[in-house]
Design a binder for these strands. Structure first.
Lengths: 188, 188
DNA sequence: CGCAATATTTGACTTTTGTCAAACAATAAT
DNA sequence: ATTATTGTTTGACAAAAGTCAAATATTGCG
């Protein structure tokens, strides 16, 4: 079973005809570490499934600092959702953290696919709402008052992050300084 | 033009037939201040449009503290999205902050409506992705390191909040203590 | 209106976190 | 392998924010 089929299977029973159509509208690419795959300010025309690897998504504030919004790992969707579905400029940039494999499609092909298979509207809606709801977990980290509590909460809810993401990005993600995070780690 | 039609009109040209169908699947209710409209743990069967008023949405952590996730005001959608679209228990509670008017529908009627008018799948998707993207602005508040910077950022991006939300909820929303927020305000 | 409940402010004090500068470690490039 | 670059740790210190307790305001209700 293809990776994308496997991913979709959780939401819908994918037919042979649909698989063929999906293969026609997607391509798989290998992306090296530190490559920009979606860019702040651009209208994001792509939506993808991160088969293997990891990415960080951030926005750049007025002072030019990267503020990490989230990470994504194997099996998670990759998209500047607001930008893709509204065809408006993206407010975030996504960059690979590791060498990654991504299955892509673009807006025009996505639209033609859901026109042909309208039941996939519901699949996308369900997948996105689930993904967003999980993003709410992030709130839990940030609602903790102390930096240590934020870090502990993150480790518990999303342990993948500490295994695969450099410290400085985690600090940005949690809204604390690298030095503070480094000191928290020392005390373990 | 009805309020819901007006809201939808931004995304799609609403026909007379659709308006009639929408009126059939929705009802308008008045809700008093401090009433729970969606509850953490329940499978949320309702989705609504807040015509007038305001609400706060929060989750309760292990210590029993309310952690505010967001506020909504006149014209904004009301839903525990993950819960409604996945029919899973909600992770958040929503309570009115003021006397409010809300137009509701439920999951069964929503499904039958989009089955009859499938073009509304796209409307919902677009509306939700836009709403979520705006929620990302929240990230900007929380990524500021100092409490003052968080408050200033919030005032700039969403000034409605300071006009209509009690201090203690704003403090929770920003992840700081009431006392700190009170002191920040004094210095203005 | 007046009381009770709720919300906000203030003060004194402690702890946490940020800042800046520098050392050290790890990684990638030539 | 050596160097350059990038990432992490450490220290000293200042600034910011939390905590606890109590005093005021404000709001809502009978």
């Amino acid at each position: 079973m293809s990776l994308i089929q496997n991913w979709l299977q959780e939401f819908i029973n994918v037919t042979e005809e649909e698989i063929i159509a999906i293969n026609e509208i997607t391509e798989t690419t290998m992306v090296k570490t530190n490559e920009v795959i979606l860019k702040q300010g651009d209208i994001s025309d792509k939506i993808g499934l991160l088969v293997k690897g990891s990415v960080r998504t951030y926005f750049t504030d007025k002072k030019g600092n990267e503020k990490i919004v989230f990470f994504a790992f194997d099996g998670e969707p990759i998209a500047a959702i607001g930008s893709f579905f509204n065809q408006t400029p993206s407010s975030v940039t996504t960059v690979t953290l590791e060498n990654s494999i991504i299955i892509w499609t673009d807006h025009a092909r996505y639209i033609s696919f859901v026109n042909k298979f309208p039941q996939y509207n519901t699949v996308i809606l369900t997948a996105l709402t689930r993904w967003f709801s999980e993003g709410k977990n992030r709130m839990e980290y940030l609602h903790q008052t102390s930096a240590k509590a934020k870090y502990d909460s993150m480790c518990k809810v999303n342990p993948k992050i500490i295994e695969r993401v450099p410290l400085k990005y985690i600090a940005s993600y949690l809204g604390i300084t690298q030095e503070t995070l480094s000191r928290i780690r020392r005390k373990k």
